[in-house]
Each structure stands twice: as C-alpha cells, then as structure tokens.
Amino acid sequence: MSELIQSPTMDMTRSLSSNVMTTRFDKLLGWARKYSLFQYPFVTACCGMEFMSTACSHYDLDRFGAAFPRFSPRQADVIWVVGTISHKIAPVLKTIYEQMADPKWVVSFGACASCGGPYDNYATVQGIDTIIPVDVYIAGCPPRPEAVLDGLLKLQELIQNQKHEWK
C-alpha cells in the first residue's frame, strides 16, 4: 500500500493522519482491480500446457491475485489468448472478446498468439493483434512459467498506472 500513501496535509491532526490516507481515486481503483483479476483462459494449443503448469501448485498464479478462472467471458476481466489462433477460430475469439464487459485486458500468450510463431502458413493468423487489441505480449514457445508470472506482473503494473473510467 505504501505507494498509495501521500504525505498528509499539514493541518491534519495526529489521530487523523494515522487513520486516513489520501490517494487518487483512480489509483485506488487500479490497485483494487489489479489484485482481483478474473481471467478467461482461451486455451487452444500447446501453450495451454504451460498455462496449466503455471496455474497449479508449483508456480501458483494464485499468489498474484489472479487465480480465478471464469469460463464465461461476461464475468472475466482479462482474456488470456493461449496458443495458435487459426483462421477458423478467429471469429470465435473476436466474439468472445466483444462479449467481455469493460474494463477488459488481453494477454497474448506465446509466440503463436503474438505473431504466428513457427506457423507462417495458410491456416494461421499472424498475431491476434490483427483481430483484437492486446495489452501484454508474453514471448516464448511456450513461455516458461516464470515468463508467464512476469507477464502477469507487467499487466498488473499496467492496470495500476492506467486511467480508469469509473462513472
């Protein structure tokens, strides 16, 4: 929390200063949102195996407040696009993205989702950013669990620092 605390106003009483802190509402909202990410894993391919590993006890995504998979896009905050997106599944991905309620974020997990990876051919979409906007790219084929955790931290940083619509 320390990052949120700003120096108390000069004329505040002592007791008030130990019970009250001031911050921007935007920041508070960011702080709350970044630690309660409901995620929708859109798992298609091999990267899903590493996603599984990351979510399980060895690497434990739970530590970062993002362990709650919601398999309904309407309840999710962040969609992880995990694996190769072919042209056949692309419209499905777009629909799911559009079904999600704002605010929403997109993580592109692995080389395939980010740029097509090893598959430069007739069947594969060359990066999901040609279809939906992406917030965080995680490199690797597949990314190691450590890289996934790093990507999650990056996303949280982004959420903390972005401007939040709250009206």
Binding site: T44, A45, M49, G83, T84, S86, K88, P118, Y119, A123
Partner: peptide, 28 residues
C-alpha cells in the same frame, strides 16, 4: 479443425531435421 496449423505442408517445406520442431507440436 479449429487448430489446423498445416503441419503436413510445413514439413514439406523444411529439411528433414527442421521438420522435427513441427512434430513437437502434434501431441504437445
């Protein structure tokens, strides 16, 4: 067919050893 990634076509265009990376991604 939602994950058709042209494994067979890709193998035809890579050398014998290069094709091994595509076999990794069959049963991952």
């Amino acid at each position: 067919g939602y994950l058709h990634r042209a494994f067979e076509k890709s193998c035809e265009e890579s050398t014998w050893n290069q094709a091994i990376i595509y076999t990794d991604r069959l049963n991952y």
